[in-house]
């Protein structure tokens, strides 16, 4: 059963009600012996949204995903998916989920087509969607090939096909664009938007900030097993620091810019960290003898710095 919310079809929960959340995580903690994988993280994923889960490698993203799928058992905390506890309803929940692991690997000697037939049988689903999806991602010619003969990118496309063919209500993607060429990557982002418009929910894990900004509505940032931030994309962009690299024709000492902090200086090149309103800065730049001006993409570490700085100020 479905209800219509904001023009999207949302599947009703097991009680026939509109689900309050698709994923609800409470104080989720996972220890591997003495090592902390996740520390008391809590968040909620709303129906029909693309939820970005951003963090550097080793931050705990995959651990969180494996806990969501009940592949790992939590040390403490609770996970509710479709308003059901994962501990007691993991099979019915997984029936409505699609999952693309970060390192997608399957039986190499099988053909891609045989693997998809196998996946469809395990899910007890028809394969009708496969043809359309295969066409969209240019996979038709690879269906008859053995998986071990496919390139990394083509294998990733197979992973995408097996994730979406049964039209799951919730899709969990762990670094899904690894190995995809830029054209297919853009096609994939477009596909995710279309999939979202059908009322489906997507949990998108990545270590790539620009990628998450392209597709996600809300973003959780995780670092060293802790949730650093949970923001709407617009808020994140407002808070975000930018880097600015200036190359001057001749030296100016001391070079000071409004709303900017000098972080690096070598010869005629100056690197600043920017924040706040840029109007004053742009006026000031016009008066400088500029040889070049660059706005590089901020790294994840820089984004984390913003949040840590915010936390310290709050304290």
């Amino acid at each position: 059963m479905y209800s219509v919310i904001s023009g999207s079809f949302i599947q009703l929960n097991h009680k026939g009600e509109t689900p309050i959340s698709i994923i609800h995580v409470e104080n989720l903690t996972k220890y591997y012996g003495q090592i902390c994988g996740l520390n008391k993280i809590s968040f909620t994923v709303e129906p029909g949204e693309i939820f970005g889960f951003l963090g550097p490698n080793g931050a705990g993203k995959t651990t969180a995903i494996r806990l969501l799928l009940h592949l790992l058992h939590p040390t403490s905390g609770n996970i509710f998916i479709f308003d059901q506890n994962i501990k007691s309803h993991s099979d019915s929940i997984r029936q409505k989920c699609g999952y693309l692991p970060g390192d997608f690997s399957v039986y190499g000697h099988m053909t891609a087509g045989d693997f998809l037939v196998y996946a469809a049988r395990l899910r007890k689903c028809p394969l009708s969607q496969i043809t359309n999806l295969a066409e969209r991602f240019g996979f038709q010619n690879s269906l008859s090939k053995k998986i071990k003969h496919l390139s990394h990118g083509t294998r990733q496309k197979l992973g995408i096909l097996q994730t979406f063919f049964h039209e799951p209500e919730l899709v969990i993607l762990d670094e899904p664009t690894t190995g995809l060429d830029p054209i297919i990557r853009d096609e994939f982002y477009q596909f995710l938007r279309e999939y979202q418009s059908k009322g489906k929910t997507i949990f998108f894990s990545s270590h790539n900030l620009p990628e998450v900004e392209k597709v996600c509505d809300r973003i959780a940032i995780i670092r060293q097993g802790e949730l650093v931030a949970l923001e709407h994309l617009e808020n994140l962009k407002k808070k975000r620091f930018r880097r600015l690299i200036l190359r001057l024709k001749h030296a100016i000492e001391p070079l000071r810019l409004p709303e900017a902090q000098l972080i690096n200086h070598a010869g005629l090149q100056y690197e600043f960290l920017l924040s706040g309103d840029l109007t004053g800065l742009l006026k000031h730049l016009a008066s400088l003898p500029l040889a070049d001006i660059i706005f590089p993409e901020p790294t994840l570490e820089e984004v984390f710095l913003v949040y840590y700085k915010g936390e310290k100020n709050a304290q």
Binding site: L71, D91, S92, R94, C97, Y99, P101, L122, R123
Partner: peptide, 14 residues
């Protein structure tokens, strides 16, 4: 070890 079990158990099989 090679990740196939993870994928297998993400399917609805107890």
């Amino acid at each position: 070890e090679n990740g196939i079990l993870e994928l297998h158990l993400a399917y609805p099989i107890q």
